[in-house]
């Protein structure tokens, strides 16, 4: 297998373009590829649709993209967290669109996108606002919503370790949406905390096989996931 492209964050995002749909891993501050996000900000892209669980935490992560005016629409499950101050400001002024998706439905739509399926049938959201405009299918006496699969042009993924083949392992709950997003985008960029040699990752423990990865950045930042509580 040919080694994957190891780049800088700036090079990794080089082929990203305006109006793209972008998956960004993370849940709260865990597993957010903050260096790749910063590189996207510097590229001054416009009109992005961002798919991620949250709408940014204080001034980090997706909040940075919102601040820089890169985002047209946010697709997420939990837009109004106390810390999502940047998003709320823009949303209240009508400067960013929002699609709220139940968290498990979002996960399963992405998984379906990565698995070559057209969509999924889920009981989640039946009889709620979420069902509006969606087909309801009854199977064996239970109602399900037909939810379309979701794919993206690009995925920004945060991993713990990467090897030159692009194989990934994650750290604790920073795994969250990252592995499924890596499977469902046309171009997958990984920001890993450290790089190890081929063969150093236990094949039984690799979560994302390198076949899904197009480029990676290794940014040694042992302190990144840890911060001192105020």
């Amino acid at each position: 297998m040919k080694p994957k492209r190891k780049t800088s964050a700036q090079e990794a995002v080089e082929r990203m373009h305006d109006d793209a749909v972008v998956f960004i891993g993370g849940f709260g501050r865990g597993g957010v590829p903050e260096n790749l996000i910063e590189a996207v900000c510097q590229k001054r892209l416009r009109g992005l649709t961002i798919v991620s669980n949250n709408a940014g935490t204080s001034s980090t992560g997706i909040a940075r993209l919102l601040e820089e005016g890169c985002v047209r629409k946010v697709v997420c499950s939990f837009p109004l967290a106390k810390e999502s101050v940047v998003f709320k400001g823009l949303y209240n002024k009508g400067l960013v669109d929002l699609e709220v998706v139940p968290q498990g439905t979002m996960a399963e739509r992405i998984r379906a996108g990565g698995a070559g399926l057209g969509g999924v049938l889920t009981p989640t959201g039946v009889g709620t606002d979420i069902a509006e405009g969606k087909q309801v299918i009854e199977l064996d006496g239970r109602n399900y919503l037909l939810e379309r699969a979701m794919r993206a042009d690009f995925a920004l993924v945060k991993a713990h370790k990467v090897d030159p083949m692009g194989n990934l392992v994650y750290r604790k709950a920073a795994r969250n949406f990252n592995p499924i997003m890596a499977m469902a985008a046309d171009w997958v960029m990984v920001e890993a905390t450290s790089e190890v040699a081929v063969g150093d990752l236990d094949p039984e423990a690799i979560v994302t096989p390198g076949v899904y990865v197009d480029a990676y950045v290794a940014i040694a930042s042992a302190g990144q996931s840890m911060e001192t509580a105020a």
């Binding site: 849940f27 709260g28 501050r29 669980n53 968290q103 399963e108 920073a174 795994r175 499924i180 509580a229």
Partner: peptide, 30 residues
Amino acid sequence: GVVDNDLLSAGKRPVSLIPGGSFVHHADSF
């Protein structure tokens, strides 16, 4: 003290993992 952002609860507060605990990705969690 030190907060590990990779181990937060759904409410984004620092938590621990019990011995024998495990991690799965979001699709498996749901």
